[in-house]
């Protein structure tokens, strides 16, 4: 395998460059996926049937906590990649661990929020609105949860194998994934929650 030392580790082999571009294109597909979920949410927002509507269930506190957690985790994983480029293995691992802990916090708050909704009589089966809401939030939450597992695997590999072209590549791609989830959350934050609460 040819390793090009003039580039950062994650770009250093041809396969690595292919992987990164491939993941970007996958993110393009994810944009279309979330766009469809957003479209269905916007269309079904008024389809509340006999259940509560968006303004009645959304709470600002959990929203602010979730947003803060996710934005910060996006920052820390950015620092993780930066540390990786400096060749600082331990710092990289630590930043990744902090990121995952923040992500775990986010998922925890989301689960708590869902239980609140269910207590208020808004379940997956209540109405078109609730189905669309839970599916949009759930898909994002499932992505974050998947990220927690994926990230753990990468941390394990960083610990056991160190910073190699392969692990660096995986870590970088994981960071792209994590930032992307943050971007999706920004849109959920703005056009699901805040738009619903004004």
């Amino acid at each position: 395998m040819k390793v090009d030392h003039s580039q950062p580790l994650e770009y250093s082999t041809e396969q690595n460059r292919l992987n990164i571009l491939g993941f970007w294109i996958f993110l393009g597909a994810e944009i279309a996926l979330f766009a469809t979920l957003f479209a269905s949410y916007f269309l079904l927002r008024n389809g509340t049937g006999s259940g509560p509507s968006d303004g009645e269930v959304f709470v600002i506190d959990t929203l602010m906590i979730q947003t803060f957690l996710l934005l910060t985790s996006s920052f820390t994983i950015g620092l993780g990649v930066h540390a990786m480029r400096l060749g600082r293995k331990t710092a990289t691992i630590n930043f990744f661990i902090v990121t995952l802990l923040l992500g775990l916090g986010f998922v925890g708050v989301e689960i708590y929020e869902f239980t609140q909704y269910i207590d208020e009589g808004l379940t997956l089966q209540t109405s078109g609105f609730s189905s669309a809401l839970f599916t949009l939030l759930g898909t994002h939450g499932a992505h974050v949860t998947f990220g927690l597992f994926w990230g753990s695997f990468i941390i394990y590999q960083l610990i056991t194998r160190g910073l190699t072209p392969e692990t660096a590549n995986k870590s970088f791609i994981f960071s792209l994934y994590w930032h992307f989830l943050d971007v999706v959350w920004i849109f959920i934050f703005s056009f699901v929650y805040l738009k619903g609460m004004i």
């Binding site: 079904l44 927002r45 008024n46 389809g47 509340t48 078109g128 004004i198």
Partner: peptide
Amino acid sequence: HGAKESDGTE
């Protein structure tokens, strides 16, 4: 289309 007719925000 299943949605309630417009409220204020619409």
